[in-house]
């Protein structure tokens, strides 16, 4: 599962990259940036829940493997 950050909504609390530095990093202003890694769903959902601004979205439900449906 992959996540993205809505830059219009993010205000830089920085919880995402502090709590899961393998999924997120900070930009120069301290706003979060998704590293685009494919992670297990529980971890992606935890990231979504831990954003106080509701700025993290799940962008892809599962890895896209040809011929295999989710």
């Amino acid at each position: 599962m992959k996540v993205t950050i809505d830059r219009e909504v993010c205000t830089g609390h920085g919880r995402c990259y502090v709590l899961d530095p393998d999924m997120f990093e900070a930009d120069d202003e301290g706003f979060g940036r998704s590293l685009g890694n494919d992670v297990e769903p529980s971890r992606a959902r935890a990231a979504v829940r831990s954003c106080p601004e509701h700025a993290i979205r799940i962008s892809r439900e599962t890895a896209q493997i040809p011929g295999v449906s989710a």
Partner: peptide
């Protein structure tokens, strides 16, 4: 408590 979120630092543009 698992990954508690709160508004102690406010939220929105004036976070």
């Amino acid at each position: 408590r698992e990954r508690v979120t709160h508004l102690a630092f406010g939220g929105g543009i004036h976070r």
